[in-house]
Design a protein around this nucleic acid. Structure first.
Length: 153
DNA sequence: GCCAACGTTGGC
DNA sequence: GCCAACGTTGGC
């Protein structure tokens, strides 16, 4: 099993939105970054665990846990001119973008803020706290995952 | 809202 | 294939 961190702007899609979705499940669409796409297409599998991260908000940080509940599939929103995620360069016979379904697992009792993540010696190797850190889908180690869940209790 | 850091595009 | 211009991300 692998572990991931996925970012979302809570004004757009929050952990509560995920929890309140049918079957507590959402198609994670709209990834439009190649590195993140590669993780989704090539590495994520059904059953992987996800740290749900709120970005671009008052207190950015990890707020919950989700589970990957599908294999990677084509992101059809890229083909839909009505969609906000429409990408005219992704054509059905030459698809560019991929998605998975994720299901709400739990909210952390308390947010593990970016500030906390940055200052924790156990988490200095996290992708999130290194370099640009702009990846919206990024790998997390089993130790990092367990540590963050512990901090959120 | 600012802006640094990063990614993408497209002319050459 | 280089790189300048532009767009986006996301913390602050």
């Amino acid at each position: 099993m692998k572990y991931w961190l996925m970012k979302s702007e809570p004004d757009d899609i929050s952990i509560d939105d995920l929890r309140d979705s049918p079957n507590h499940t959402m198609a994670w669409q709209g990834i439009r970054n190649y590195q993140a796409r590669n993780f989704i297409r090539d590495d994520i599998t059904h059953g992987d665990q996800v740290l749900f991260y709120h970005s671009s908000c008052k207190v950015p940080g990890v707020v919950g846990i989700a589970t990957v509940v599908s294999q990677p599939t084509l992101d059809e929103s890229a083909f839909d001119p009505q969609s906000r995620y429409f990408d005219p360069k992704s054509e059905p016979d030459k698809p560019r973008w991929w998605q998975v379904d994720i299901q709400f697992t739990a909210k952390l009792n308390q947010i593990v803020s970016l500030q906390q993540l940055k200052s924790d010696p156990a988490l200095q190797d996290m992708v999130l706290v290194t370099k640009g850190a702009r990846l919206s889908v990024q790998p997390v180690s089993a130790d990092e995952f367990a540590h963050i869940v512990m901090l959120g209790q």
